[in-house]
Computed example of a mutant assay.
Amino acid sequence: MSSRLGFRFLNNTRFAFRNGSGPFRRQAGQGFRFQSSEAGAGEQQSTFQRMWNSPVGVKTVHFWAPVMKWALVIAGISDFQRPAEKLSLTQNMALMGTGAIWTRWCLIIKPRNVLLAAVNFFLGCVGVVQVSRIYMYNKSLENSPVEAAKDLEKEAVDSAKGVVTATEDAVKTAVEKTK
């Protein structure tokens, strides 16, 4: 399929180049020159103007989301100083999953947001490092990879049960208030 796509693109653009139609127009005494249809294309924009007018520029969420998300990466890096027994497995697994999923997504969406992909990549890396630290700590306690995996599973199940219990309590409280 990809070779067909390239062949179609070649055939469609060949006509534009031969006839000088579209943005590729012949100038008198010259070869082909690319001409932009934008007004003022001849004047140079400053770096600030290009950044401001970019589809992923300063005035868009595509810029500010990665800037704010760096706080999560910095917080994760600061947790490198904490002992492994005080780290939350579920939190760091969430960071790892978020980083992996959203890194891929940022490269698929239009406009492609490389800044957000970079911050999500580092967020995933922080999550991997922390989950590895927790795993190695649990492994050192039992000296058995099976026991360490069971401990990780038990911690994840316990935290999930805690969330379910808290949710059930909140629902009961809300139902009682409405009566």
Rank of each mutant, 00 (worst) to 15 (best):
M1V: 12
S2F: 09
R4F: 07
F7H: 12
R8Q: 10
L10T: 11
L10K: 12
N11Q: 13
R14F: 07
A16R: 13
R18K: 13
N19S: 12
G20N: 05
P23L: 00
R25G: 05
R26L: 05
F32Y: 13
F34R: 12
G42V: 01
G42L: 11
F48D: 03
Q49K: 12
P55F: 03
P55V: 04
V56K: 01
G57W: 02
K59R: 15
T60Y: 03
H62P: 00
F63A: 15
W64C: 09
P66A: 00
W70F: 09
W70V: 08
A71Q: 00
V73R: 08
A75N: 10
I77M: 14
S78A: 11
F80R: 07
F80V: 02
P83A: 08
P83W: 01
A84E: 15
S88V: 08
L89K: 02
T90V: 11
N92S: 05
M96H: 06
T98N: 12
W102G: 02
W102T: 02
T103A: 08
W105P: 05
W105Q: 14
I108T: 08
K110E: 14
P111E: 06
P111Q: 01
R112G: 03
A117S: 15
A118G: 09
A118D: 01
N120Q: 14
F122G: 09
G124V: 09
G124D: 05
V131S: 03
R133W: 04
I134M: 10
Y135F: 14
Y137N: 12
K139I: 00
E142Y: 10
E142L: 04
E142Q: 09
E147R: 15
E147T: 09
K150E: 13
D151V: 01
E153T: 11
K154A: 15
D158C: 04
S159W: 07
V164L: 10
V164K: 11
V164Q: 06
T167L: 09
E168M: 11
A170H: 06
A174N: 10
K177Q: 13
K177T: 06
T178V: 09
